[in-house]
């Protein structure tokens, strides 16, 4: 607990990032994949509609990108605040 003010700024930045990433996580799966599917039914994708693609493939691909981008951004944040291992 060398530098509390820095770790507070670090934690706030982390929380902001988590909130943004969880919004994307929610929108691609529960949003595009389920709740908003009827609204997206006009957009055709390979014999079906965009919502079906998000539910069976698209959301999983976005999940992958989310985790790796988060890991990369957090490594940078760790260094900026000098809290990396």
């Amino acid at each position: 607990m060398a530098d509390k003010s820095s770790s507070n700024a670090y934690w706030k930045a982390n929380i902001r990032m988590i909130q943004l990433f969880l919004v994307i996580w929610f929108v691609v799966s529960f949003g595009f994949g389920i709740i908003l599917r009827p609204m997206l039914s006009g957009i055709a994708v390979g014999g079906t509609d965009l919502g079906f693609w998000f539910a069976q493939q698209g959301s999983i691909l976005v999940f992958l990108v989310l985790i790796f981008v988060y890991a990369w951004r957090m490594n940078r944040l760790d260094k900026e605040h000098g809290v990396e291992e």
Binding site: W25, G33, Q56, S59, F63, I67, M74
Partner: peptide, 24 residues
Amino acid sequence: GYEQSAYLMGWTGGYVLLALLLAP
């Protein structure tokens, strides 16, 4: 088949929660 997407999203989306909220 569409309704079963719950398994596909549910059993992968949990890893986002693990990475962001618990594992580190």
